[in-house]
Design a protein around this nucleic acid. Structure first.
Lengths: 321, 321
DNA sequence: CTGAAAGCGCTAACAA
DNA sequence: TTGTTAGCGCTTTCAG
């Protein structure tokens, strides 16, 4: 391993000068510059990030907390984060929480131990553990910290508008997990908007966003609400599972049963029929959150503590005309 | 930030003793132990991983390279890796290559700069850059390094066996991207097995595993091979796109067109009809690779440089009886 | 414009 | 069983 000392010797200067050169700080003579550049080149020197981090008490690492990486929404978000930070030489430590609260604390501790520059979390965090630059993405209760979210109220309204333009008799809303803020928000606004218009609905509670849960919930839907002709699903995976069950039960979609999803995961374009859904900009959310965090890290002026991203209705083929 | 020195003072011992205590190395008197424990507790001390890494020239970080995190196969693999390492206090730096070769070099350099303990890569790596413990997973050319892969030959055989049990006239094989080793291997063995049995087939080349590519390839399939009645898809996403296109063109699956996929991504259970496919144990591959890397890091005896995981046929509803 | 020196927090000889 | 010392590779005063 070649160190800054080796480079210094090779270039016949002191380590301090090399350091200044590398970090573009302070004066370095033009000829010295060249000697150093040459030495670095020849010795194939790369600065030791760990030593740097130790001194600065700050690394070029970002902690990313995801509820469940197997949920197709989050890889997209992660991609946005990674893409953004890569251009600035920051890198991402991945924490997959998987509904295991112990892991949150473990990761937070580890982030601290490794001097991460900042934390990006799609998992709700208590605000008492915010000794670091932190941006909450997606699952925010909003006020406490910096955050990015998609506009769930708007999404709810879009759903209700889309549904009320159709004919419907028996609406069933699949409520997402209680402990997921976004699911609750959506549920709240959907029910409110529906009530405002005097529309009746029933509710099927769901406890998890996990994949295997989707099919059992789909089963429950048809046994508990045999009359259902309209489903407002908690997310796309859930909606897709219902489409399939409906098909098995010979209910035609959307003729006998219409469905609207949420997320617009890549798969929702490939179902039969293609899923009408609300698009959340997962990649953009990750990107925006990264951008916000980057500004936080560099102590730039932040115009807004919260950014709210628009969602939009993607009209495909699972709603009746 | 409380340091080991603070703890030492508080417990009236030297930093060295505290270090010995923390790392369970060398002798520490019973009463000293307790004083130290108490001090750590009271001061809420957590060891500084960066300082540790600097000294050891080795961190508790693992570099993970993925070709494309949006491809549903890889989040599962990543989950296996993360799950495994979390139990040993190692953590994962995520590198999403996204078909951008420059990123590979950038990440490799960065892994070195951060003293990662080891590298896990689902992206093929030149063996000249192996100054670190490295395990290649999935996309291996095999011989050079340590590796985990699913048995692509077995998968190919399973496909051919399944197909030849059905009735078929016009088989089209969708070849995966040329530069993906596993795709080539499968293609090689499928074509060979087919040829061995004197079965004819045609080939549709595909250049990418990306999502948006799947639909255009599905289009090409039906325009270039209007007679096709059997498709061997390169992966599940591709297969699902074809199922949808077939439906739009009023070709019944599997009656008019039968399809077999590859991967068994979670979605493949939710298609209509449900996709028959070859299951690759994505999570297990990640887990096993992590296990292998862990042994490599700890210089344990490795019985096998390569582990080959079985795949299996998941019979669902897209093949004719 | 450049160098010497000190120190980030930790661990491993080596002495005591 | 414990403490002293030195040093991992880097950066930053502060002198020159």
């Amino acid at each position: 391993m070649t160190t800054i000392k080796d480079v210094a010797q090779h270039a016949k200067v002191s380590p301090a000068t090399v350091s200044r050169y590398i970090n573009n700080r302070g004066y370095v003579g033009t000829d010295t510059r060249q000697r150093i550049a040459k030495a670095i080149e020849e010795l194939n020197y790369v600065p030791n990030e760990v030593a740097r981090s130790l001194f600065q008490k700050k690394s070029k690492l970002i902690g990313l907390l995801l509820p469940d990486i197997a949920n197709p929404f989050f890889p997209l978000l992660a991609q946005g984060v990674e893409d953004y930070f890569h251009q600035y030489g920051y890198h991402v430590i991945l924490g997959n929480i998987q509904e295991n609260p112990d892991k949150i604390a473990a990761y937070l501790k580890m982030f601290q131990q490794n001097f991460v520059a900042g934390i990006l979390s799609a998992v709700p965090l208590n605000s008492d553990e915010l000794n670091k630059a932190t941006v909450i993405v997606d699952r925010t209760d909003c006020q406490s910290t910096y955050s990015i979210s998609a506009n769930n109220q708007q999404g709810a309204q879009l759903i209700v508008d889309a549904i009320t333009e159709t004919s419907y008799e028996n609406i069933v809303i699949i409520a997402g997990p209680q402990d997921v803020v976004t699911a609750n928000t959506r549920f709240h606004y959907v029910t409110r908007a529906l009530a405002n218009q005097g529309v009746n609905y029933q509710v099927l509670e769901n406890t998890s966003y996990r994949f295997n849960n989707a099919l059992t919930t789909a089963d429950r839907l048809f046994t508990e609400f045999p009359q259902v002709d309209t489903v407002i699903a908690a997310n796309d995976v859930q909606a897709i599972a219902i489409i399939q069950k409906a098909h098995q039960l010979k209910r035609r979609v959307p003729k006998d049963l219409q469905i609207i999803g949420y997320d617009d995961i890549p798969m929702s374009e490939l179902t039969i029929p293609r899923l009408t859904t609300i698009q959340q900009p997962a990649f953009a959310m990750g990107w925006q959150a990264a951008d916000m965090l980057y500004q936080l890290i560099n102590e730039e002026e932040l115009v807004d503590k919260h950014r709210l991203l628009d969602v939009k209705l993607i009209t495909r083929d699972t709603l009746r005309k």
